[in-house]
């Protein structure tokens, strides 16, 4: 690792932190996005609803982590540590949910499954 790369890993990009006014502006943006999310709940936008809500959620998450938690300005090491946990969690639980057929179209109810098992036993 070069000296510059090492310096950036330890201290981050070294940008100036936002001012108090910036923080208030960021909070306003977050509030507007939240209002948009709640509005979407009541407005029927069909199949676009879930992807739009997820995009808004990721946007809010990113803003809080980058600006309020200063991850955008802080050491790369912190970013790597947090992102590793986050990526691991998303990957592991997406795998779990996929294996449990959460995203599948198996609508067989527990009762029906029970009956099928019983009839197979008989």
């Amino acid at each position: 690792m070069t000296a510059t790369a090492h310096e950036e890993t330890v201290h981050g990009a070294g940008h100036k932190h936002p001012t108090d006014a910036n923080y208030m502006l960021i909070a306003l943006i977050l509030a507007i996005i939240t209002a948009g999310e709640v509005s979407l709940y009541y407005i029927d936008v069909g199949t676009a609803m879930i992807p739009t809500l997820l995009v808004m959620m990721v946007l809010k998450f990113g803003i809080v982590v980058s600006y309020f938690m200063h991850l955008k300005f802080d050491s790369l090491l912190f970013r790597r540590l947090f992102v590793s946990g986050l990526v691991l969690a998303v990957a592991v639980y997406l795998a779990v949910m996929t294996s449990m057929q959460l995203f599948g179209d198996d609508t067989t109810s527990i009762h029906q499954t029970g009956k099928t098992s019983a009839s197979v036993t008989q």
Partner: peptide, 20 residues
């Protein structure tokens, strides 16, 4: 930061359990 990274796994587990 290490604790927060690991806490992602705790809440990931709880959220996915709820969804299931």
């Amino acid at each position: 930061w290490a604790f927060l990274g690991s806490d992602c796994l705790l809440f990931g587990g709880l959220i996915s359990t709820f969804l299931l």
